[in-house]
Amino acid sequence: MFELKKLVSALLMPLPAMLILGFLGLLLIMFTTRRKFGSLMVLVSLCGTFLIAFQPLSSRLLMPLERQYSAFLPINESIDYVMVLGGGHVVDDDIPPTSELSRTSLMRLSKVFV
Score class of each variant (00 low, 15 high):
5 K>C: 02
94 D>C: 02
93 D>P: 10
99 S>I: 07
73 L>D: 10
82 V>E: 01
61 L>Q: 11
88 G>R: 07
71 A>P: 04
83 M>F: 05
47 C>P: 02
15 L>Q: 08
61 L>T: 06
104 T>Q: 04
61 L>E: 04
15 L>Y: 13
98 T>A: 09
35 R>K: 13
97 P>I: 12
96 P>C: 09
95 I>C: 00
105 S>Y: 05
19 L>H: 01
8 V>M: 05
88 G>N: 14
106 L>P: 05
26 L>S: 07
104 T>V: 09
76 N>A: 07
50 F>Q: 09
82 V>I: 15
94 D>W: 06
38 G>Q: 06
15 L>F: 13
73 L>E: 15
85 L>R: 14
98 T>I: 13
32 T>Q: 00
61 L>G: 03
105 S>D: 07
35 R>A: 09
30 M>I: 00
74 P>Q: 08
83 M>R: 06
26 L>Y: 14
56 P>F: 03
35 R>M: 11
79 I>Y: 00
7 L>P: 05
58 S>G: 06
64 P>Q: 02
76 N>S: 04
68 Q>T: 04
109 L>T: 01
66 E>C: 08
89 H>C: 10
103 R>E: 14
43 L>H: 04
105 S>N: 02
106 L>T: 00
4 L>F: 00
58 S>P: 06
91 V>E: 10
28 L>P: 08
10 A>E: 03
28 L>N: 04
27 L>E: 07
64 P>I: 08
48 G>P: 01
32 T>A: 09
79 I>S: 01
37 F>P: 00
68 Q>E: 08
102 S>A: 06
92 D>Q: 08
46 L>D: 01
89 H>P: 12
91 V>S: 10
72 F>G: 12
49 T>V: 08
99 S>Q: 15
83 M>Q: 05
21 L>R: 03
60 R>P: 02
11 L>T: 03
82 V>H: 03
40 L>I: 13
67 R>N: 15
14 P>T: 05
71 A>G: 01
32 T>Y: 01
85 L>I: 14
72 F>A: 13
93 D>I: 12
2 F>R: 05
24 L>P: 02
51 L>D: 07
19 L>W: 02
65 L>K: 11
55 Q>S: 07
17 A>I: 09
85 L>T: 15
73 L>S: 14
82 V>T: 11
42 V>N: 09
27 L>D: 01
98 T>K: 12
20 I>P: 07
39 S>N: 11
62 L>E: 08
72 F>V: 12
8 V>E: 03
85 L>K: 15
109 L>W: 04
103 R>F: 11
29 I>V: 15
17 A>H: 12
91 V>T: 14
70 S>F: 13
